[in-house]
Amino acid sequence: MECMVRDVPVYYEVYGEGFPVILIHGYTPDHRLMTGCMEPLFANRSGWQRIYLDLPGMGRTPGVERINSTDDMLDLVLDFIDQVIPGQRFLLVGESYGGYLSRGVVLRKSEQVDGLALICPAVIADPARRELPPHTVLVEDPQLLASLDPTEAEEFSAMAVVQNKYNWERFRDEILPGLKIADSAFLQKIRQNYSYTFNVDQLPQPFTRPALIFTGRQDDSVGYQDAWRLLESYPHASFAVLDRAGHNAQIEQNQLFDALMSEWLDRVQESLATSSLR
């Protein structure tokens, strides 16, 4: 599907019907990063409408000249939400850069957000200021890497903490396609203006609805320690830091990811049911 947000034709996909869930992928991949890890959760859950968009310069949404920064990206996401679910309440799930954008959405639309899940979120925009663990590979598979296209092997091994067939196949299907079609020139422009020009965590009041912050112990892209500092702003957030998991923790620790996300959805359902009785 396509939604014109001012001059940007935003590509998005919708699954299911019911209470809206907005899902925002990370920097360079596309919506497939999110559908791959989230859709299995809804196989036996009805009543949720999942909305996956491609950010500008990624997937099927083109970058345009007027979008020059993360501030501009956030404005586009806010306008997209206003167009596809005008005035409705919704859940928000963001991965990496999508987590950074999601915190901006919470700041601007907290009265509409009934739950927040952050997957390996980028907390500090400037990589030089992040607290990062050293690059670590816990399970190596030289034969697997040797069987791959060299460029693909390099992409996979740069992020994989556990190099096995399962993790490779999900990386190949969910992440690599977006990396291959990303508009690198446009994204480099955004990278130069990656930080918000405002304090995204200066919420007028703490976000009291159910939240989840899911991180990888070996994530050398965004780390996990910076995310811990978000908890004061989210008093009903569960925080998980998982071993044997890097920046693709949702894949490398898929069983725990499924369990924690399911528990978050259960808390959201309970919260929604309670609020409807008031």
Rank of each mutant, 00 (worst) to 15 (best):
V64E: 07
P133Q: 02
S184Q: 12
D7F: 08
G36F: 10
Q188I: 01
A43G: 11
F257E: 06
L74E: 05
Q192A: 08
G115R: 06
G104E: 06
R108W: 09
T197V: 01
Q253V: 00
D226K: 02
R32K: 08
L265K: 06
Q269A: 15
Q255D: 13
R108E: 13
Q250F: 11
L116C: 03
I190L: 05
V222T: 14
V268E: 07
I124T: 14
F90Y: 15
Q255V: 13
F214D: 00
Y11G: 14
T208I: 12
A240S: 15
V162Y: 03
L242A: 12
N248D: 13
S238Y: 00
E111A: 08
Q143G: 10
G57P: 09
Q202D: 14
C3I: 12
A122Q: 11
A182K: 09
V113R: 07
A249T: 10
T215Y: 03
R244A: 14
S110R: 05
D54P: 10
Q255C: 09
M261I: 05
V222S: 12
R50N: 11
S276M: 13
P9N: 12
Q250K: 04
A125I: 10
P210C: 08
E252L: 08
V93D: 05
G99T: 05
E174K: 00
D219V: 01
L148F: 14
V106Q: 08
C3L: 13
T35M: 12
I190Y: 00
V268Q: 03
C3S: 12
V14S: 14
A237D: 02
R130N: 07
S238V: 05
Y100Q: 09
V105S: 07
I67R: 02
E131M: 09
Q269C: 12
D126T: 05
V8L: 14
P56S: 09
A249M: 13
R66D: 11
F257C: 09
E174P: 07
D201P: 03
I190S: 00
A273Y: 08
E17G: 15
L55K: 07
I85D: 09
